[in-house]
Design a protein around this nucleic acid. Structure first.
Lengths: 209, 209
DNA sequence: CGCTTAACGTAATGAGCGTTACAGTTGTAG
DNA sequence: CTACAACTGTAACGCTCATTACGTTAAGCG
């Protein structure tokens, strides 16, 4: 998925600069959104001229797509899925929800920027948006797999439904945190969410024998 | 809340123009977001010159705040809260969730634009954002009141927690619909949500006697 | 040394932006 | 009729934007 940029570090500064640009762009884009992220701002924040940004990235769209990709990778790496031996099932769901809550608090850039991008509809869809939808889909597939193991007998459609709900509520809780700031404690909310998911899954296995 | 603009229709065209501007701005802003909504685009879409827009509204920020306010009013008017006589409680929550789902499908402008605004953090917070947070808070208060009647014995903090969760999941489901489009059917998702809320409320009244 | 090339620096381009100045138009009041 | 206020139309302002052209520097390699 990651592009190794062909070259193998001829000049040490290149890779370093690329990282600095991505850092700056992530910081700005996470706060100001797609339009609000100007090349001038990123340039100022990373100390490199605009031309260097354009040397490392095709254009602004390409830069922001790379930001999302990297930020998602960082987030996904920080997320340690609970092992299959954890029991009972409620503990497993709660542990997973807690993990998601914690990692979202630590590296929220890709989700914040990604959600902004999904809500907008430009005439030409930015590849940054496509990138977000793509990584989001892999996360979704992983979650569906976990939920499927918790409800062995359930049909595929029901699993998909619960998965959609699980992700949606997580998105919403993330936004609630963005709005409420310190007055919102994510942990009990994600506990509530885990309960809801557990109940829904249990219903899947008991109501459709 | 609404500003009556002082004058009482001296010239018929004025009110009509104002409405046309708001319609156009809502259409554009719902799709393109805050930055993406240019005065030139709104002007083109409503057939009035930019100067007319600036005659009716102080500036772009003022215009978008008015868009959110009006769109919220339309949404809130369409929302008929289920009467207190509806029973059992699950039916009441389900009815409410269904109402929210339906009205969000019909008039999604204020929520889409509002969510975009909440996710961004500019140096100077637009009054459009403040307006959204304000109307959102009134909606929140209303929902909390409804939930409180369903769980008479519950303490205030628990009600607040469930309310936050309820709104968050609704936001997330709205976004899921934006992403998935026709492949996402909101109704079963909001049913699932209603179940989750009902379970949470029931737990509030039984677990803390 | 000299050639190639990755990377940075300077400066400019053209387009679009929000906003305003200002002159016209038209209905209403005195 | 005149005066005035509510609007509309035209044209420009200054600014920021993404992007690029182009010259400079320095490391790797023969």
């Amino acid at each position: 998925m990651r592009e190794p940029r062909g070259e193998r570090k001829r000049r040490a500064n290149g890779e370093e600069s690329r990282r600095r640009i991505l850092d700056a762009a992530a910081e700005v884009a996470g706060v100001r959104g797609y339009d609000g992220t100007s090349i001038a701002l990123v340039s100022e924040k990373c100390g490199l001229p605009a031309s260097s940004i354009y040397w490392h990235f095709k254009n602004k769209d390409d830069l922001l797509a790379a930001v999302i990709e990297r930020s998602f990778d960082i987030w996904a790496d920080a997320l340690t899925l609970p092992g299959e031996d954890t029991d009972p099932a409620l503990d497993r769901v709660t542990a997973l929800a807690g993990q998601v809550a914690k990692t979202l608090l630590d590296s929220p850039d890709f989700l914040r920027l990604g959600l902004m991008l999904t809500l907008e509809r430009r005439p030409e869809e930015p590849s940054a948006r496509r990138m977000f939808l793509q990584v989001r889909d892999t996360a979704r597939a992983r979650l569906a797999a976990v939920l499927a193991t918790l409800a062995p007998g359930a049909d595929r459609d029901s699993i998909e439904l619960v998965t959609t709900y699980a992700i949606a509520a997580a998105d919403g809780l993330f936004i609630a945190k963005e709005i409420g700031g310190d007055s919102v404690d994510l942990m009990p909310l994600f506990d509530l969410h885990a309960r809801a998911l557990h109940d829904a899954i249990t219903r899947l296995t008991t109501e459709t024998p």
